[in-house]
């Protein structure tokens, strides 16, 4: 009913700016992206509509449609999606999570400059977790985006043309079209005190916290959805390495970061000493 009040249940801010919020209006679920559009759906996801705001930036509408809108509707159908970028080599993928501005897209784009590396995702990674195969060792991810959205300094550093101050989409060579096995999830952290990039394993609650903070959820007040997510995250955490990469904000650290991350594609049993 159009006159019903919206109850906002969660919001995401970057600095002081509201970038997204999730709410309910009666039985409908709402996701609002201020200045860009509003997604409305019912719980069964049998009815869903993304309505761009009049005068919204076309590129922003396209980006949200290809990433967050798809991820939110996947969540309604029981799917697990993380806010992450990912790249692949052969049949293996590595994903990068972290807050907005932590360098997920830059890392993916920089890796894709290597001849053997393909883009799997720029903003959201979609897990393929079949309910009846929870005991299997691998978790797969499906390709979700074929473009990386980069800030001007990252664009120029990686040799692309670009100006202005906003992120712009860049088509990368060879976006993958097939499901890949996820080897590792890397939390990206900027650390002004880091003399050089370092990578370490996260265990237990620390690993779980990183995964949980990256989940894209449309239904956030349903215990059954919470329980399902718990099982899904347990499976992900058991099946692939969860790590943290600390580096300075300098793009000059990118080469060393890529060298560290590059090892993750080839070995499931990386020793702690190899990571540092």
């Amino acid at each position: 009913m159009a006159s019903e009040r919206v109850i906002w249940l969660s919001e995401q801010r970057v600095g002081s700016s509201l970038v997204a919020r999730i709410g309910r209006r009666g039985d409908d679920l709402l996701a609002e992206f201020p200045g860009t559009g509003v997604l409305t759906a019912n719980l069964k996801s049998s009815r869903a509509n993304f309505e761009p705001v009049r005068g919204a930036n076309e590129l922003a509408v396209k980006k949200i449609n290809a990433s967050l809108v798809t991820a939110l509707l996947r969540h309604l159908r029981g799917g697990l999606t993380l806010h992450a970028s990912a790249t692949g080599i052969g049949e293996s993928a590595v994903a990068f999570v972290g807050p907005s501005g932590s360098g997920k897209s830059t890392m993916a784009a920089a890796l894709c400059a290597r001849p053997d590396t393909q883009l799997v995702a720029d903003d959201t990674i979609a897990f393929e977790l079949d309910e009846d195969s929870f005991s299997t060792f691998d978790v797969d991810v499906s390709p979700t985006q074929a473009e990386a959205w980069l800030l001007p300094d990252a664009l120029r550093f990686l040799g692309f043309q670009g100006d202005g101050s906003e992120k712009v989409p860049v088509s990368l060579r060879n976006p993958t079209k097939t499901r890949l096995s996820l080897r590792a999830i890397v939390g990206l952290v900027f650390d002004a005190r880091a003399h050089q990039p370092t990578i370490r394993s996260l265990r237990g609650h620390e690993a779980f916290q990183l995964l949980s903070s990256s989940v894209i959820r449309f239904v956030i007040d349903d215990p059954a959805a919470q329980a399902r997510e718990f099982e899904q995250l347990c499976r992900v955490a058991h099946s692939c390495k969860i790590l943290e990469l600390r580096r300075s904000r300098s793009l000059r650290d990118l080469d060393r970061s890529i060298e560290l991350v590059g090892r993750l594609y080839y070995s499931r049993g990386i020793e702690e000493g190899d990571l540092l």
Partner: peptide, 25 residues
Amino acid sequence: EGVSAREFDGEWIVLDLQGGNYFGL
């Protein structure tokens, strides 16, 4: 009721399904 827990990497992760909060033990 409504609390679920799993052992992971030698730590217990406890989920409060009502509040949606994870706790590490």
